[in-house]
């Protein structure tokens, strides 16, 4: 019995010693990245870019988050990082106000804080890496629609609802771009789908029969794109009426490969993670300060800063050629 105990003790001591020496070797800058939930494919694709940036910069990247979208867990993880004394915390906030109390505490402890994907309260972080401005999204969608129709003919839109503020804003930018650059194109209808795929499909079917000259359907809510694609496919109009819009690659892959949907517009999530890490490290090294107008992030080049928002810039277009490289 005693012998076993002795063995256990020595084993424990050896393990302990190895752990201590392992830590002594680490004196790299530590950047901690907190996604809304770490199992979400969207954030995993952000991590791919973040890992790349961490490698290029020679820093240690911690990537941890709740296994589900849990605001309380986010706070606990931030508090954990505060006492671990990390250098930078980059957060995609699940709950704006809730996370901010923990982030302010981190700032007080001398940790640089920035947000990406979803912002916290402005006083709780120094910069927000903004993946898409309403203007960028609106212009990107309209330009792609024009490219697909050779800038002429009728098109219709499917939106989530006619009142939702982000949808309204995007729609205004789309219409402004249309008026300014594409006089030969005509927006014939805007229909709400209540963020439901079934409703989007029935609305699209109605649009197709009511507008025989329709050349394209643009959906600006994510269930809208596969919904419209299904309608076009069932009406046997594949290729004749183009489908495109704002959405996630995975739910549209099927239609893109079948040639029903031409392009999906979103931002490049890998670039988002990459930019967030570069900005975080620059903050920690005092190379990025309030009031800066531009920021250079490694191989991605230079980004514009508007106020305290670092803009990821132009939306990314997913199509048949590249959609399989993305999994979210």
């Amino acid at each position: 019995m005693k012998k076993i105990l002795l063995h256990l003790c020595t084993a424990g001591a050896v393990l302990l010693a190895s752990l201590v020496t392992a830590t002594a070797a680490d004196s790299k800058l530590v950047v901690a990245m907190l996604p809304k939930s770490k199992g979400n494919a969207y954030f995993i694709s952000c991590k791919v870019g973040a890992d790349k940036a961490a490698k290029e910069l020679g820093i240690q990247l911690l990537f941890d988050g709740p296994t589900d979208s849990n605001a309380a867990k986010q706070n606990e993880i931030v508090e954990n990082w505060i006492t671990l004394g990390v250098d930078v915390i980059a957060v995609a906030a699940e709950n704006k106000e809730g996370i901010s109390t923990a982030l302010r505490k981190a700032q007080k402890a001398g940790i640089k804080v920035l947000t990406f994907d979803a912002d916290a309260m402005t006083d709780a972080r120094s910069f927000f890496v903004n993946q898409a401005t309403p203007e960028g999204i609106g212009q990107g969608l309209m330009d792609e629609a024009a490219r697909l129709t050779n800038s002429e003919g009728e098109f219709a839109m499917i939106v989530a609802s006619l009142t939702a503020s982000n949808q309204r804003e995007w729609q205004q930018h789309i219409e402004a771009r249309l008026k300014e650059k594409y006089p030969k194109m005509k927006l014939v209808a805007v229909r709400p789908c209540d963020d439901l795929k079934d409703k989007a499909q029935s609305e699209a079917t109605a649009l197709l029969s009511a507008n025989p000259k329709l050349k394209l359907i643009m959906a600006i809510c994510s269930p809208g794109v596969p919904g419209a694609a299904e309608a076009v496919k069932q009406a046997g109009l594949t290729g004749k009426v183009k489908v495109m819009g704002l959405g996630l690659p995975n739910e549209n892959k099927r239609y893109v490969h079948a040639g029903v949907t031409d392009s999906i517009i979103l931002w490049n999530t890998g670039d988002l993670g990459y930019l967030a890490i570069y900005a975080g490290v620059a903050l920690a090294k005092d190379e990025l300060k309030q009031g800066a107008k531009t920021f250079k992030a490694g191989s991605l080049g230079t980004f514009t800063i508007a106020g305290d928002n670092i803009l990821l810039g132009k939306p990314f277009i997913f199509n048949k050629a590249n959609i399989d490289q993305f999994d979210f």
């Binding site: 424990g12 302990l16 752990l19 201590v20 830590t23 002594a24 680490d26 004196s27 790299k28 800058l29 530590v30 606990e76 508090e79 954990n80 505060i82 006492t83 671990l84 004394g85 990390v86 250098d87 001398g110």
Partner: peptide, 30 residues
Amino acid sequence: FFYFAGTTINRRGAVVGFGTLDRQFDILRH
């Protein structure tokens, strides 16, 4: 175990990790 294995000195020279009073209070709070 955690006191010896989980306490380190960070890049800025501060003692961080398990062996800090803040951490003990965090444990209590959580």
